[in-house]
């Protein structure tokens, strides 16, 4: 049994899914919006990166920047369509959920119509080499994906800790009502938040496309995984999302090694259900009070 393989796999998957989960989690806790169009943003930024690699050139920086920027653009679309018009209307959480689902339906079908059903593949961003770390052979894409995900996530979290905009977002996460009382504009902050989380989806899309392909419906499974991680970690908590990502990453690599790939989702959902039955608001979610949108 190759433990090194399992561990590196787990870490890579945890990094990528954790990026998605943190995006979903931040959106929910600061805006009260469950972004079901995340899969669409994911696929859209995959195509953005692909277009950049075809028309500009397969430079890693260009491709990654294109993916992240397209993701931010997708986030803005969702914000302008599904958050700003209805965020102060009655029954907002349910309507926003349905609106983002509708955006996802429309967007995915437009991608299918425009680009066709054939999957595209991105150039290898991190070269084709192997590293030997403490006797464990790590392929370049795994190492590059984990490192860049960790690097960019750290940058974003530091930005959220230290900047004025990050302070606004964190205030919205703590108590949106009080934040709006002290003069933090809900609509303005929502634009930052959605652009930020969209760019996280774009990053995850570029990283995951190293292993898989870019296709119109490629975003749905990662979105559901990201949602489940955010759910297990407790919606709205970044440490929780990290713990959930590590847990599910370990689970995925263990299951696919020992039982086989088709059992991954089953064990994953059993794990999620067990965690949620013990702690209904996730690992580090606040127990007694959900976010009142």
């Amino acid at each position: 049994m190759n433990w090194g393989f399992i561990v590196t796999n787990a870490i890579t998957l945890a990094c990528i899914y954790g990026t998605l989960a943190i995006g979903i989690s931040v959106t929910w806790s600061s805006l009260g919006l469950v972004n079901m169009a995340y899969g669409f943003i994911f696929a859209l930024s995959g195509y953005g990166a692909w277009l950049a690699s075809v028309y500009i050139g397969p430079y890693p920086v260009v491709v990654m920047a294109a993916g992240i920027l397209t993701g931010a653009f997708g986030g803005l679309i969702v914000c302008l369509l599904a958050f700003i018009p209805i965020h102060d209307k009655p029954n907002f959480p349910l309507r926003a959920l349905i609106a983002t689902l509708a955006i996802s339906l429309v967007g995915n079908q437009i991608l299918l119509w425009w680009f066709g059903p054939r999957a595209k593949s991105l150039p290898r961003l991190f070269g084709n080499w192997n590293a030997d770390i403490l006797g464990v052979v790590v392929t370049s894409d795994k190492l590059g994906a984990s490192l860049s995900a960790i690097l960019l996530l750290t940058l974003i979290l530091m930005w959220m800790r230290s900047s004025r905009r990050g302070l606004e977002i964190r205030a919205m996460m703590m108590n949106p009502h009080a934040a709006s009382i002290v003069g933090i504009g809900v609509r303005r902050t929502s634009i930052y938040v959605m652009a930020l989380t969209g760019s996280l989806a774009g990053l995850a899309a570029v990283l995951l496309a190293q292993t898989y392909y870019v296709a119109p419906f490629s975003g749905i499974t990662p979105m559901i995984k990201g949602l489940s991680i955010a759910l297990v970690g407790g919606l709205g908590s970044i440490p929780g999302a990290t713990i959930g990502a590590i847990m599910l990453g370990v689970n995925e690599s263990l299951t696919s090694t020992f039982l086989g790939g088709q059992y991954v989702l089953i064990t994953q959902f059993l794990l999620i259900i067990v965690v949620l039955l013990i702690r209904p608001r996730g690992i580090s979610g606040i127990l007694d009070k959900a976010r009142e949108a």
Binding site: W28, V34, P93, L97, I224, L227, S228, L231, L235, F269, I272, I273, L276, P280, R281, G282
Partner: peptide, 9 residues
Amino acid sequence: FYYALLTLG
């Protein structure tokens, strides 16, 4: 929503 997301899964 926790339930909605779980059932989606």
